[in-house]
Structure formats: structure tokens, C-alpha cells
């Protein structure tokens, strides 16, 4: 499965917690969050667009950095 890298404007544990919860609701993804670097890695077959929209639900700025 491709591993996508996103930059999400997270500033605290509450932010990363919110990201964790919205991603948990989306089935078929495995992810890692690096809070200090504001990066989220998602392993999934889903469209980048879908993942992007899910991350944006948190109300934070999201940037797609491509696959790793």
C-alpha cells in the first residue's frame, strides 16, 4: 500500500488526538503521527482526496507532500 505524507498544522496533543480520532473512524488506514514535525503518514489504498478531506475535518491546514 502506498504511504502518503501529509503536513497538518497541529500545535498540541489535542490536535493530534483529533487527527487520530477522525482517522480511526475511516476504515482501512494505518497511520503514524509525528507531532513535533507536524507530519502524518497514512498507509492506505484510498484516494489522496479522501484522506485529505478527512484530515481537513479537524479544521486544520493540510498539505500533501506526496508518497514516500
Amino acid at each position: 500500500m502506498p504511504k502518503h505524507e501529509f503536513e497538518v498544522a497541529m500545535t498540541c496533543e489535542g490536535c493530534s488526538g483529533a487527527v487520530t480520532r477522525v482517522l480511526n473512524k475511516l476504515e482501512g488506514v494505518t497511520f503514524e503521527i509525528d507531532l513535533p514535525q507536524k507530519l502524518v503518514w497514512i498507509e492506505s489504498d484510498k484516494d489522496v482526496e479522501v484522506l485529505m478531506q478527512t484530515l481537513q475535518k479537524c479544521g486544520k491546514e493540510v498539505k500533501y507532500n506526496g508518497t514516500k
Binding site: 500545535t11 498540541c12 496533543e13 489535542g14 490536535c15 488526538g17 483529533a18 480520532r21 479537524c58 479544521g59 486544520k60
Partner: peptide, 10 residues
């Protein structure tokens, strides 16, 4: 689940 001002703002 809110921990800081940025959570509140979003």
C-alpha cells in the same frame, strides 16, 4: 479532547 487555544479556535 481540547487541550489548547488552537483546538478552541478550530
Amino acid at each position: 479532547g481540547m487541550t489548547c487555544g488552537s483546538c478552541v479556535q478550530s
